[in-house]
């Protein structure tokens, strides 16, 4: 790990000011991703700004019937919060499907959004990686890419190629819930819908999010609609617990008199950001639970998917996971 200096600001403005003034500095929250990457020399900040003493740990109701999750509330405190459990059980489940109990006690909601890809080549400074070192190439494209993306990749130009996935479980549920991220920066406050928070690699795979230098995430706002009655989070991975998703699916449905009135489907483990396809969701609205064709919905979401060899199995796996998650959310799942 490189050497760095350390500070512990007591309020948001000081924290933002320090980051803006100090080139090469980074915020540290739970530290579970940043310190891991610093030990691998992938991240090399020269100054760490410890934001754990900012008053951003609360979880409280918003005026429009939603819930505001403080950026520094831990993943554990969020998943086990009474209001989150009763009004947004999809989010609780997704968070609890991630990492381990110890890590969830440390990981914060803000840090979770910024966690970086688990691509092995990104972690290995001896190999090329456009995300870590712009223009150096992509080790995964012709390498071991079992955990890599099948949708929204950047695979043409060798110097901007990237087929990495975003590893967060929490973000997949937030995408289905259409959360709004609250940000404070040198130019004041702004809000970013979760759909615009993470980005596809495009020509700049080194950028994971649309957040600007100097900006601090202060909270995540959940809109009132939480799909507490019909929801499912399915995470498929190499072992039953404590592993990242190969494919995950978050589903929220609203069903009245057996008719689907709203549907949200978000996928994890398949792209550089949580993946949604509004056309596919629209195919469900107005249908009764029995007439809805979950298989066509799955086909639509995966249209344009492309495998790179080791990860090609994810295309079929994702389709089956979507069908299963829809059945589970609609409560039509049969034992198999």
């Amino acid at each position: 790990m490189n050497r760095f200096s350390y500070s512990r600001p007591g309020n948001v403005d000081t924290a933002v000011g320090e980051l803006t003034r100090h080139e090469g500095a980074k915020f540290i929250a739970g530290g579970t991703n940043l310190l891991d990457l610093m030990k691998e020399n992938v991240e090399r900040p020269n100054h760490l700004i410890d934001i754990n003493h900012l008053a951003l740990k609360t979880i409280e109701d918003t005026e429009d019937g939603g819930l505001r999750l403080g950026a520094l509330a831990t993943n554990a405190d969020t998943a086990y919060n009474d209001k989150v459990e009763s009004r947004y059980p999809l989010l609780s489940q997704a968070i609890l499907a991630g990492a381990s109990a110890q890590l969830r006690n440390m990981a914060t909601n803000g840090g979770n959004l910024f966690q970086r890809t688990r691509c092995y080549y990104f972690y290995d400074t001896g190999t090329p990686c456009n995300k870590r070192e712009p223009g150096s190439g992509c080790g995964a494209f012709n390498g071991f890419n079992r955990i890599h993306a099948i949708l929204g990749t950047s695979d043409e130009n060798p110097e901007t190629r990237c087929i990495a996935t975003h590893p967060s479980d929490m973000a997949v549920a937030l995408a289905a819930l259409e959360a709004i991220i609250r940000v404070t920066g040198p130019n004041g406050e702004r809000t970013v819908p979760i759909a615009d928070f993470h980005r596809l690699p495009g020509n700049e795979p080194w950028l994971d999010t649309t957040i600007q230098p100097g900006e601090l995430v202060t909270a995540i706002d959940l809109p009132a609609k939480g799909f507490p009655d019909y929801y499912a989070y399915i995470k498929l991975r190499d072992r039953q617990s404590y592993a990242f998703a190969l494919v995950s699916v978050a589903v929220g449905l609203e069903i009245e008199n057996n008719q689907i009135t709203d549907a949200r489907i978000a996928l994890g483990g398949v792209a550089h950001k949580p993946w949604r396809k509004p056309e596919a969701e629209a195919m469900l609205v107005g249908k009764t639970v029995t007439e809805a064709d979950f298989q066509s919905v799955a086909e639509t979401i995966l249209s344009g998917a492309k495998g790179y060899g080791h990860n090609t199995f994810k295309i079929e796996l994702a389709k089956r996971a979507i069908v299963r998650a829809l059945q589970r959310a609609a409560k039509t799942e049969t034992e198999s």
Binding site: Y6, I28, G30, G31, T32, L35, D36, K39, L48, D50, N52, A76, S100, A101, Q102, L103, N105, M106
Partner: peptide, 26 residues
């Protein structure tokens, strides 16, 4: 030393954490 095994688990204010992924100064 990377949060993957739990051998370093300690309790901080009664909560279990991985002591390898936090700084003493924090």
């Amino acid at each position: 030393d990377h949060g993957q095994c739990g051998a370093c688990t300690v309790l901080v204010d009664g909560k279990r954490i991985n002591s390898c992924l936090t700084l003493a100064i924090m």
